[in-house]
């Protein structure tokens, strides 16, 4: 077989119901245990929320996990506690604290609620990090529809000779469900991934936050608009391609009349 099992796994997860990515991922790992670590590090899943001892909520992912513990961005401590859990260097932790404050503002301005967490780690020639945002409003009992949004922005900041080079990979998971007597059941869910790369002139260490912030803000806006287009434009168009509400002969007749009028106008 020419296709690599890892690539086949990713292809499978791109095709099967995105609402069940977690279950399907576990299934693949069951039949192909060799792929476990690579898949867990590659496949994005909806973020879990935990509360740290400072009383603040933070988000859990593979990047702040060490063994079975997760590190809180607010306290820099692992829960359950670890004696020698991996933490960023002092200078990178300083940036991480500033980034958490900045993206808390970003979260408030764009999400008006939800939870954010930023995790940084050291690289040989720079550092890398992940910016996580989640909004999952509790559906009111009266609401017929509900939704959840998860953003996962992973970046690398590399120190080049003359500039700082940033590479950003962003995934948004957007799940929506709706139900009712006349509607029945509707599930419109999925995820999209996009990338961006940019160079900024070197400056103060604190400039990293502004550079990364701009890139995340630009790409997330692009993705929000793209998802609006795919979820409510494209999906609706495909349904209309499958079945037409109006009768096709009437539609074609209208089109014919329209064509005649156009050609009539042109002849004048």
């Amino acid at each position: 077989m020419s296709v690599d099992p890892f690539d086949a796994s990713l292809d499978l997860l791109r095709r099967l119901n995105p609402k069940r990515t977690g279950t399907n991922l576990n299934s693949i790992i069951t039949i192909a245990p060799d792929l476990t670590e690579d898949l867990l590090a590659t496949v994005d899943q909806p973020l879990e929320v935990a509360r740290c001892k400072s009383g603040r909520d933070y988000l859990l992912c593979d990047y702040n996990r060490d063994g079975d513990s997760h590190r809180s961005p607010w306290t820099n401590e692992y829960d359950p506690p670890l004696m020698d859990g991996t933490v960023p260097s002092e200078s990178v932790r300083k940036l991480e604290i500033a980034a958490n404050e900045a993206f808390d503002v970003y979260r408030d301005l764009y999400y008006e609620g939800g939870v954010s967490s930023v995790y940084f780690w050291n690289l040989d020639d720079g550092f890398a990090g992940v910016i996580l945002l989640k909004k999952a409003p509790k559906p009111s009992s009266a609401a017929k529809s509900s939704g959840t949004w998860d953003s996962i922005h992973v970046f690398e900041a590399n120190d080049k000779q003359r500039a700082w080079h940033y590479k950003l990979t962003s995934t948004v998971i957007l799940n929506m469900v709706s139900s009712g007597e006349t509607l029945g059941e509707l599930d419109l869910s999925g995820n999209m991934t996009r990338q961006a790369e940019k160079e900024f002139p070197k400056g103060e260490d604190s400039d990293h936050i502004a550079n990364i912030g701009q890139m995340v803000e630009d790409l997330e806006l692009k993705m929000r608009n793209l998802m609006q287009e795919v979820y409510f434009g494209k999906a609706k168009d495909v349904v209309a391609d499958l079945r037409s509400v109006a009768s096709l002969s009437a539609t074609n007749k209208d089109r014919g009349i329209h064509q005649e009028m156009l050609s009539g106008l042109r002849q004048r």
Partner: peptide, 13 residues
């Protein structure tokens, strides 16, 4: 829909 992603509409009435 699956261009650089995986989006699925599933309905039942």
């Amino acid at each position: 829909y699956y261009e650089d992603g995986n989006v699925r509409l599933l309905t039942k009435k």
